[in-house]
Design a protein around this nucleic acid. Structure first.
Lengths: 155, 155
DNA sequence: TTGAATGCAAAGTTTTTGCAAAAGC
DNA sequence: GCTTTTGCAAAAACTTTGCATTCAA
């Protein structure tokens, strides 16, 4: 994702968030905005702990509870997707046009590789259409052994 | 899934489990087998708590820890898939040939439609190969509005 | 007989919540 | 000023683990 695309994504995201806050009659807050800025900057799936530990050493040091509250708010606003990889922590990803990726997850070392595949996306749309669904988002996780772990396993 | 398919699935499952136990030099156990029988009987996603509460009122009343240990063993054996629903509890699903489905999930009414699509599966294999992964299983969830909820939303 | 499996309770993790203080509108 | 948000710590929810005992091979 290049710089221009990222800026467009961020703009879209802040717009949607402002709309949501206005509609729900909620207030802005510095901490929340810093958390979200970091989230957008990282531009990948993150856990609450990830965001917390990155920000606590900075000038803004939100409490972990605030990070959780922020992520839950974004979830309610439909702006992030929450999923669970097998290490026990929930991870969150931005839901914005053009930002989606799927995951290859190693069942041995828990490494996660992100990928995109337009053909799969097209087929998903076809399936959705067949069942009369209007898709909002999706989640595709492929589990298996990465090259290294497959080798290690064979030894 | 009809009776015959289910029996085939169960047979496959117990075979694989026995192989795993033998290879890992583990022992059989009554409690574990009762837990697994119930799991196979239910033939759907279950949480540890689900199995525990179903069995504790029966003659076999395994401890909750044993249920967790059994499910983790099955996971290590690659015989079940663990997923997280939004209620916080992990759910487990049998991984056996011919039992896999992907899901279309309505974000409004939470209806779930199962589907299969061979073309998508083929593309998944291609992606995996490209990254050097040996796939064990996958999880594809498509979220959106079903026909009814989309109409209702427009009103 | 040896090592694995169990049950219980205690401990560990991740996430949520109560409350007083601070901040946004 | 009234309401939301925050930080902290306590609590909650879910899962794992230690240990003595029981069970399988």
């Amino acid at each position: 994702m290049n710089q221009e695309m990222r800026e467009k994504k961020d703009e879209w995201f802040w717009d949607k968030l402002d709309q949501y806050l206005a509609k729900a009659q909620l207030k802005q807050s510095k901490q929340r905005n810093f958390i979200i800025e970091e989230f957008l900057r990282l531009n990948t799936h993150v856990s609450a702990e990830d965001l917390y530990s990155r920000l606590k050493s900075s000038e803004h040091n939100p409490g972990l509870a605030t990070v959780y509250r922020t992520l839950n708010l974004l979830k309610e606003a439909g702006l992030v997707d929450q999923k669970q990889f097998s290490d026990g922590k929930a991870v969150f990803e931005i839901l914005a046009p053009g930002t989606h990726h799927d995951h290859l997850i190693c069942v041995a070392c828990h490494k996660v590789i992100e990928f995109e595949n337009d053909e799969i996306e097209t087929l998903q749309e076809e399936v959705a259409k067949r069942y009369g669904f209007r898709l909002t988002h999706h989640s595709l996780d492929l589990f298996g052994y990465c090259t290294e772990c497959w080798k290690a396993r064979a030894d």
